[in-house]
Design a protein around this nucleic acid. Sequence first.
DNA 1: ATTTTATGTCAGCCTTGTTGACATTCCAAG
DNA 2: CTTGGAATGTCAACAAGGCTGACATAAAAT
Lengths: 169, 169
Amino acid sequence: MADGPGNSIGGENLLFLTDEQLRKGIEAMFFAYRGFTADPDRILEDHGYGRAHHRALHFINRTHGTTVNNLLSVLGVTKQSLNRVLRTLIEDGLVESRIGKTDRRERNLYLTEAGAALERTLSEAQRERMRAAYRAAGPQAVAGFRQVLEAMMDDEIRSQYNAMRERRS
Amino acid sequence: MADGPGNSIGGENLLFLTDEQLRKGIEAMFFAYRGFTADPDRILEDHGYGRAHHRALHFINRTHGTTVNNLLSVLGVTKQSLNRVLRTLIEDGLVESRIGKTDRRERNLYLTEAGAALERTLSEAQRERMRAAYRAAGPQAVAGFRQVLEAMMDDEIRSQYNAMRERRS
DNA sequence: ATTTTATGTCAGCCTTGTTGACATTCCAAG
DNA sequence: CTTGGAATGTCAACAAGGCTGACATAAAAT
């Protein structure tokens, strides 16, 4: 029984989608995600942080001055959960929370120099693995990779993801 | 500034790997994984289970009669952590634990009919999303998807993953 | 007979999710 | 202008599911 996703038959892609192939895809996703988070996890451990801190740092870095509410909708957690993480990051001097200028209820979030430094360390580790995987697989594979991932997102998430395209910090 | 992974330039792939592209890949991975687990998560919630239970069911289903130790190494958690999950699954009659025939210290794990039924429900939901993503992206994209994911795994994990190829249950 | 291995269990800790209650601020309707 | 709701963020308490450490038991290996 041949394996690998190359044995497309039929006009479109019929036999192509065997349960066995799908199962392999599911497991590949599971194991790859573990690898994907492994390097940052190690670094975070040294600092006493977890993945939640990494996610917050990542998205604050991407959109400087974002509000807590914005961050909530991107991260998909409750505000209370996010708040705990934010509080430690602020206490530790990695994130700065400024009261909103137009709406004083809002808090605009920024990375401090130290926060930006940690974010760079984390994302560089993650980029390095991604880069290695991309190199090993080649440009065409990368295009396919991104296409499948995008199709796998929830609809609302996909629009959020796409909205983050042209944005220079 | 053009986006998308198609603008490969240079002899190999040099400009291809911009930090911006890598960042997009990282975020795609993050959001796609959320979508990937969303459907099973909803089903599990109704039963009072979590992702940990899903993972156990999945791998017990894939390799009937696997031992606790085997499961530990695949899942990458401690035995105390796995045991908590396993205990509830056994109490609820979804998993059966039989004393090993050759080595009576070992426990061979099997899904009961009820366990297999829940596993089918969960994996069918997940397969359905995977199937939809595959259809939307096309066969070539799927090949690339799998290549990149495989390259992203840790080395030991990749061998485990590959060892699971030809295995009929 | 002793040691090692496989498994299970108890206790306790940490991260990170949850809900509920509350404070602050803004805005709009009276 | 005041007052009531809506939006935003904070604090407290709880649960799931990771983790470590210590210990028990049974069976295999030496």
